[in-house]
Structures are given as structure tokens and as C-alpha cells.
Design a protein around this nucleic acid. Structure first.
Length: 451
RNA sequence: UCCGGCGUAGCUCAGUUGGUUAGAGCAUCUGACUGUUAAUCAGAGGGUCGCAGGUUCAAGUCCUGCCGCCGGAGCCA
């Protein structure tokens, strides 16, 4: 019988063991020596605690063995938990015994000092052990947990979409391609939405949650080629229902992180008062109102001319927003804002026209404050067979490949809507990370696939 | 893809108008210290100046090409 793991004690729960002797195992985060005193910071994945060895109080061999502990040595200790104001975290361990699993034969490359980003990215597998990365990845896990809690508690069924797909969701230029036995090419999914629509017709409210892939040659601090997205899809929801749902979801995620991740947010130095404000209702603006705002504020559109020069235009109705426009719009807001009803020309073929204004579609994006950018994109879907077919032909998409998708409009078509929330963009905003590469354990970017 | 920038010690960087044997801090090693939080103090070791070619009496420094990386734009979540 091996059920020992249930008795293991971790740093995060040490305050429950003050006065008791415990066994801890982990890695050396840092060590300093001061004559007859040694301080060893033990990192066990749940936190860091300082272990103290005072020469007169420990066995000679234990004190000598502890001197071998270079950074990232794996080791275990038996010691007494003591509350001490001088210790970071308020708790420390008086060591009674100490044993070593492995001493690094070479110097650990990442020191507690500064490093450049190229060096850190090449050592991503080790960088994960640093405090800041620890905090970010724990917030990421908390965000995922909050997302699942939210949907599971609100009548949604998890119905995952395939990752290997036979055709594009929105054009083929940005797809990763691979051979699929004798059946020709397969592509890595860039959205689970179309399949989620099929699932929603079977199960009512569904969500798909998994990795998606975009072979875009983007090189910015908010792009990855592999990223995670949660995509709810709801039968009988119109655009307003969907905007309400998106607000409820984001409010739940942020408030849940605030409830569960105070330690992590403190490590990150995040100003939590800004997150506290993320309560419904959020702000909302139509695309047309947003354009008027940009024109009034004098935010220009910079356009490249064929001769290579650039010209600045008053922002024209009909252009999609880029990062500069989104930032200008969000400057005025201290919580997220939904922009809805975009020009049909800049949006995807499956979005439903607004019956009240045929120039626009029933689409919406949610922009996060504090430079968080676009975290959600969604829409009410075109549910009319003929209009959808017309859009597919207009975009020159392969009609054959969309037969199954058109079937959804043939057999009991209903109004339905959904959206995609980018997990990494959301975590980047909540943690305040400068770059999206920090919020996924092993980022995949245009010029980096190692480690 | 386009625009801009950077490659010097294990790491982060300095290096003047081209001029002797290429420098600092941290890290590492040795020694001292009973409270360190990026400890402090004393000492030691550590270099293919990204790679290749060129100019020059002389190149880390100037020129050309290549490689690697970073930031931004577009596209998007």
C-alpha cells in the first residue's frame, strides 16, 4: 500500500504546523552562510521557506552537509516549524536533519540577478522555476479552473472540437499543414467554433477548450502561434445574451483570481485595486460610436501607400481597428469594454447581418483595460442556409468542405451565438505580464520552438 | 512580410578619434562573520569581442556579406 503522498507536507500549508516537526523536500532557491549560521531557502513548488541551521544546535555532519547545497540542489529536511518575524513569509524551519538527492555538477545558469530575454527564453525549462514564472503559471491554472467552474455551473456541456481538421475555418493562409495518411492534407485547428456550433445543436449550451494554432507571421507581445482558447456556443442565444454571458464569464474569472491568488498577485506586484473594479456592467459601444470617438479624438489611421510612403487619414468608417485604435478607445475605461456591430466586410463569413443595419454584422469584441487588448471575439451566427451559402461563395471558400456546416442550417436551424476567449491574453492582462510568452509554460512563436 | 535595433567573461553591461597586456558589477572558488533577505569584508580564477572576408603599420571599434536575437506594424484571441 502506497498512500504516503497523502501525508506529504508542503510549504503553502506550513502555518498549520507551527511548533511541529515536519519533513519537506524541494530545491535550493538561495543559500547564504554567515559563520555559524546557514540560511537555505527551500522551494517545493507551492512556495519558498527559509531553513535555518545554527551550528551549536545541529549535528556536525548535518551542518557540513548543508554547506554543499548550491543553487537548485534537490534535498530534503526534517525540522521544526517556527513563527519568526525576521523570516520572509513569517515562518521558518529550524533544521534537525538534512539529506541530498542531487547536487548540480555545473553552476545553475539562472541567478537571482537580472537576465536578458534571449537567455531566459533559451532556458525556459529552467526559467519556470523562478518566482515570477511560478506566480504567473499558478494564476493561469486558476483562470482555467475559473473558466471550467463558470461553464460547468451554468448548464454548459464540455464538447471539445478536433485539433486535426480537413479545412480552414477562416481562410487557409494561416494554417499549419500536415500529411494525413492517404487522405491528403490535414490542418491544425485555428478555431473550434464550427464544430462547437454542431455540438450546440446537439447539447444546447456547449464549450470547447483547447489549443489552437495560427501560422501568422506575427511578432508582437500579444501573439503566439499556439495558444489556448475557450469557445462557448449557445443555441437560441442572440448577440445581447452573448455579451451578457461574456461579461459574466470575465467578471467570474477576475474575481476568482482575486479570491484565490493573493500570494501570486503580490509576487507579481499587481495593483489589485484595478482588478477589484472589474464588476458588471462593463462598458459597451457600437463600432460606429467607437469610430466617432476616434475621429473626435483625432486618432488617425496610418496606411501604407504603394510607393512605400505612409499617409495619415481621419479614421474612416469601415476599417478594422488595429492595436493603436484599441488602445485609444480603452484609455478612457477602467474596466473592459465590448465593441459590437462591426462592418460586415472586415468580419468572418459566418457572422449574421444586423437586421437593423445591413452594413454591419452582429459581432462583438471585448477589450481589456490597462493595455490588455482584445481578449474576446464573438458573434451571432448566420442561421439562414441561403445567406450563409452566399457568404461562403463570396469569400471563395471551398463549398464542398462546408456541406456539414451548412447542414446545421438545413435541419432545425436556430438563432445561435458564441465567442472565443483567448486564455493567454486574459492571463497576460490579469497578471500584468509585459509579454504573452511568459503566460504559457512553453511558448510557440514565429522564431522560437525550442525548448 | 515591412521598419528599427542589438550580438564583448557563466550573466548584465561599459569600452572615447582605430593605438600598449580588453574592463566593471554579479555569479563561481578560498578565507572571516550568530540573522542573511540581491548580505558584507579580503583574495583568486575566468575572453573565438556572433561568424567569414576586407581596409590599415595597427580593428572590439571602420566597410561588405552571412547567422542569431529583440522591439514595433499588419493580421488576429
Amino acid at each position: 500500500m502506497h498512500s504516503h503522498y497523502k501525508t506529504y507536507i508542503y510549504v503553502e500549508r506550513l502555518s498549520e504546523y507551527i511548533g511541529s516537526e515536519v519533513v519537506l523536500r524541494g530545491w535550493v532557491y538561495d543559500r547564504t552562510e554567515k559563520g555559524k549560521l546557514q540560511f537555505i531557502k527551500l522551494r517545493d513548488g507551492t512556495g519558498i521557506v527559509q531553513c535555518v541551521l545554527f551550528k551549536p544546535n545541529v549535528a556536525e555532519d548535518v551542518f557540513e552537509r548543508a554547506k554543499q547545497l548550491v543553487q537548485e540542489t534537490s534535498f530534503g529536511i526534517r525540522g521544526t516549524v517556527r513563527a519568526d518575524e525576521r523570516a520572509p513569509g513569517g515562518v521558518e524551519i529550524d533544521v534537525n536533519d538534512l539529506w541530498i538527492y542531487h547536487i548540480p555538477p555545473e553552476q545553475y545558469p539562472i541567478t537571482p540577478k537580472e537576465h536578458g530575454i534571449e537567455f531566459l527564453m533559451e532556458h525556459r525549462h529552467l526559467w519556470l522555476r523562478s518566482q515570477r514564472q511560478w506566480a504567473i503559471l499558478r494564476v493561469r491554472a486558476a483562470v482555467v479552473r475559473a473558466i471550467r467552474e463558470f461553464f460547468d455551473a451554468n448548464g454548459f456541456v464540455l464538447a471539445d472540437s478536433p485539433i486535426l481538421t480537413p479545412n480552414a475555418c477562416e481562410g487557409t493562409s494561416t494554417l499549419f499543414e500536415t500529411e494525413y495518411f492517404d487522405l491528403g492534407k490535414a490542418y491544425l485547428s485555428q478555431s473550434g467554433q464550427l464544430y462547437a456550433e454542431a455540438s450546440a445543436m446537439a447539447l444546447g449550451r456547449v464549450y470547447t477548450f483547447g489549443p489552437t494554432f495560427r501560422a501568422e507571421r506575427s511578432k508582437t507581445r500579444r501573439h503566439l502561434t499556439e495558444f489556448w482558447m475557450v469557445e462557448p456556443e449557445m443555441a437560441f442565444f442572440d448577440l445581447d445574451d452573448t455579451m451578457d454571458l461574456a461579461e459574466d464569464l470575465v467578471e467570474h474569472i477576475v474575481q476568482s483570481v482575486l479570491r484565490n491568488c493573493q500570494r501570486e498577485l503580490a509576487v507579481l506586484g499587481r495593483d489589485t485595486s484595478k482588478l477589484e473594479r472589474v464588476r458588471r456592467p462593463f462598458y459597451r459601444m457600437s463600432y460606429t460610436e467607437a469610430v466617432e470617438y476616434l475621429q473626435k479624438r483625432g486618432v488617425k489611421l496610418i496606411r501604407k501607400n504603394p510607393d512605400g510612403t505612409e499617409s495619415q487619414l481621419d479614421f474612416p468608417w469601415g476599417e478594422d481597428f488595429g492595436a493603436p485604435q484599441e488602445e485609444a478607445i480603452m484609455e478612457q475605461f477602467d474596466k473592459p469594454c465590448i465593441i459590437h456591430r462591426y462592418p460586415a466586410e472586415v468580419k468572418a463569413f459566418y457572422m449574421k447581418r444586423d437586421p437593423a443595419d445591413p452594413r454591419v454584422v452582429l459581432a462583438m469584441d471585448m477589450l481589456a483595460p490597462e493595455g490588455g487588448g482584445e481578449i474576446i471575439g464573438g458573434s451571432q451566427r448566420e442561421d439562414d442556409y441561403d445567406r450563409l451559402l452566399e457568404r461562403i461563395r463570396h469569400e471563395n471558400l471551398p463549398e464542398d468542405a462546408f456541406q456539414w456546416y451548412l447542414d446545421l442550417r438545413k435541419y432545425g436551424s436556430v438563432p445561435h451565438s458564441g465567442f472565443g476567449l483567448g486564455l493567454e491574453r486574459t492571463v497576460k492582462w490579469i497578471t500584468g505580464a509585459e509579454h504573452i510568452r511568459e503566460v504559457i509554460p512553453f511558448p510557440r512563436m514565429i522564431y522560437r520552438i525550442v525548448p
